[in-house]
Design a protein around this nucleic acid. Structure first.
Length: 288
DNA sequence: AACCAGGGAAGAT
DNA sequence: ATCTTCCATGGT
């Protein structure tokens, strides 16, 4: 049981963060209280950490607390990474003020990238969400977590890979997974359990190495890896050109009568480096 | 009623 | 190597 006040550099729009997280029914958000509860694995044990907003857009501050017996320093370190408290958005916004995304960055001023709570759940979520509309995708992940994960202090934890590796395709089909999706989720979990893939080790490698290792897994293609790099590992310069949402957003931005080609997207994105992840983030918002 | 969805594998050229 | 089809189901 502990708590600590953490002040960070603005701008940081926590209310936007909460509204966004609310789209996924698995997130423990309280808009009235301006709080978020985060499920964490610390020292191989599940712990719930609560974040409460105390500040405002330009002077953000948070009360971070936990009733779990867990290491305070490690917990705050993990939360800082997930909520990207160590990434100042000032440079980013300044950079985009001279690009085609100027207006988009004004609209989303102070909106940070938010990571998934751990790389494995990010990977499972990506596989489950492949090729599905967002509302059904969230239903599927919700069933997945409610069936095979667990709840602690009102917060849902994704299952560990050992649990999913031990399932049969039929058990996931029962949740309305396709046969393929079920095979992917189980197969990837098995690769993690048997040590073929270590997501924590992978995180430290160059992006090309992460790509070449993960692409071998059945069910893991370019889109899934890009999403893991962005939302699992928090890489700041990722642009998922294979994503339908990004393509539609660019079509809308540039008033195209068709989706942009890969070559066109490579050209558009150049001025947005090295903050491509934020460009992608706000482009997604622009079509919601 | 079609057509698409914040893809990817397997089969067919 | 590149193009096409299939997967399952909900949303529009």
């Amino acid at each position: 049981m502990w708590q600590e006040i953490v002040s960070i550099k603005g701008p940081y729009n926590f209310e936007r963060v909460l509204e966004r997280l609310l789209l996924d029914p698995l997130h423990a958000v309280n808009l009235e209280e301006q709080t978020l509860k985060i499920p964490l694995w610390l020292d191989a044990k599940p712990a719930v950490v609560e974040i409460k907003s105390l500040g405002n857009l330009e002077n953000p501050a948070f009360n971070v607390s936990s009733t779990s017996e867990t290491d305070k320093t490690k917990a705050i370190e993990a939360v800082t990474k997930i909520l990207q408290w160590d990434q100042s958005l000032l440079n980013t916004h300044h950079h985009f003020s001279q690009t085609d995304l100027k207006e988009l960055f004004e609209i989303h001023y102070g909106t940070p990238l938010i990571l998934d709570f751990d790389p494995y759940s990010c990977l499972m979520k990506c596989i489950i969400h492949q090729q599905l509309n967002l509302s059904f995708a969230h239903k599927l992940t919700e069933r997945f977590v409610h069936t095979f994960g667990f709840e602690k202090e009102g917060v849902w934890f994704y299952p560990q890979p050992e649990k999913i590796a031990s399932l049969t395709v039929e058990e996931l089909r029962a949740l309305q997974f396709s046969g393929r999706k079920a095979e992917y989720a189980i197969g990837v979990s098995k690769a993690i359990v048997n040590g073929e893939i270590d997501l924590e080790v992978l995180k430290e490698l160059p992006e090309e190495d992460i790509f070449s290792k993960l692409i071998k897994l059945k069910g893991v293609g370019p889109w899934t890896i890009q999403n893991l790099l962005m939302f699992g590992y928090g890489k700041p310069n990722l642009f998922p050109t294979g994503d339908i949402g990004i393509q539609n957003a660019l079509k809308k931005l540039y008033n195209l009568d068709r989706k942009p080609t890969l070559e066109e997207m490579e050209k558009y994105k150049q001025p947005w480096e090295p903050y491509l992840s934020y460009a992608a983030l706000y482009l997604w918002r622009s079509i919601e």
